[in-house]
Nucleic acid binder design. Structure first.
Lengths: 205, 205
DNA sequence: GTGTTTACATAGCGATCGTTATGATTCACC
DNA sequence: GGTGAATCATAACGATCGCTATGTAAACAC
């Protein structure tokens, strides 16, 4: 098979009129709106206003509202997922739990982003039309529980943690606290309050 | 001032055609729908279907959608609030915390009700139109934190609890766990999983 | 230049949203 | 029976929803 010009790995530019907006910046703006108002309560009008992009351009670039939301979620969790990296790079099992909790306490009270956690609030309760979206976010949460549970189990096996500690229960506990801190952060809780909760949780691990 | 017939404390019946539906049963049905699908993602169509009542009757009996939701919330939290009663009737500060956690674990995984907590999920993320609803639920959560915090402080003062325990932090911790357990319950967590989380939390109090 | 491809802006699609106008119906009271 | 009050069922209101048809503009290749 011979090499054609169109097979170039990185073509200078695709044919046709180029995008007139920054796709990544628009996605970021969409993420912030979904973060604040949730999936279903965010209208296309909210999105076009925040992204500075007209509806046809949104649909051309992202497919539809659901696909845009899921892409915003992927951007929110990171690639690879921030939580996964925090657990993997932690020096110990306890440090992994603490890293997740600290990251949440900081991220949920940031001044440049909406309060709370997008994963926790954006699809907490949705219509039947969005059941699949809810399942998607649920799977992400389940993965965090699973990964932290495995790390804590290793901590028990290594002798780092008290053998009486139930890794699955502790992991669920940590994730529950994280999800709950999202609610408190949205209610106005300060970073200091969340930090005190984290300290409380770490006492039990 | 003389007594007229219309001043009767409990008139047999008000004039006009009587209500053709059970107002309390309809409110209960509405509560369940809001519990499952949230405030904004529940449509009037969902409500009329579940309540068996036509739109004009809903508006005559409850005002509008927002008022109906707030009345459903009041029904959910109880009158007086179940959480308040649990704290007041607990034999100790620890028992108060445990009662709240146990009640949540049981209530969030009930078979006759939607999973999770209406307060946690029904208005987690809403449009600007529903900001006041969000504030209302936030106030309820804040009241629980406040009441539990006061009870734990009394426990410290009484010598029941470790003086190093921060009552406010512990109360926030408990409420965060409760709100987070709602998310896990919606994700499919079993009663046993929630119970194990509760046990984990109680170890630290 | 012509042709092709892609994105643009304008405008509007059908459906659903929360809400209500309308007139018939069912009760208490005289 | 007649009158007034309240609820009923039917139907539809204006607004907004997510989404798209249409024609023009801007880049490419030739």
């Amino acid at each position: 098979m011979h090499m054609k010009t169109s097979d170039r790995i990185t073509p200078r530019r695709r044919p046709g009129r180029p995008l007139s907006f920054d796709r990544d910046a628009a996605l970021h703006a969409a993420m912030l709106v979904f973060w604040r108002h949730g999936y279903e309560s965010t209208s296309l009008g909210d999105l076009t206003a925040a992204m500075g992009v007209t509806p046809p351009s949104i649909y051309a670039a992202f497919g539809n509202k659901k696909a845009l939301f899921l892409e915003a979620v992927r951007r929110y969790v990171g690639e690879p997922a921030v939580s996964e990296r925090l657990i993997a790079e932690a020096a110990s099992a306890r440090a992994a739990a603490r890293a997740l909790l600290d990251s949440a306490a900081a991220g949920f009270t940031g001044t440049d982003t909406p309060r709370g956690c997008l994963l926790a609030s954006a699809a907490a309760a949705v219509s039947s039309d969005a059941a699949d979206v809810q399942v998607e976010l649920s799977a992400i949460r389940a993965a965090v529980v699973e990964q932290l549970s495995a790390r804590l189990a290793r901590g028990v096996a290594d002798g780092e943690l008290d053998p009486s500690l139930d890794p699955a229960a502790a992991a669920s506990h940590v994730v529950a606290v994280i999800q709950g801190m999202s609610t408190l952060a949205r209610d106005g809780a300060t970073r200091a309050t969340l930090d005190s909760i984290v300290a409380q949780v770490m006492r039990g691990i």
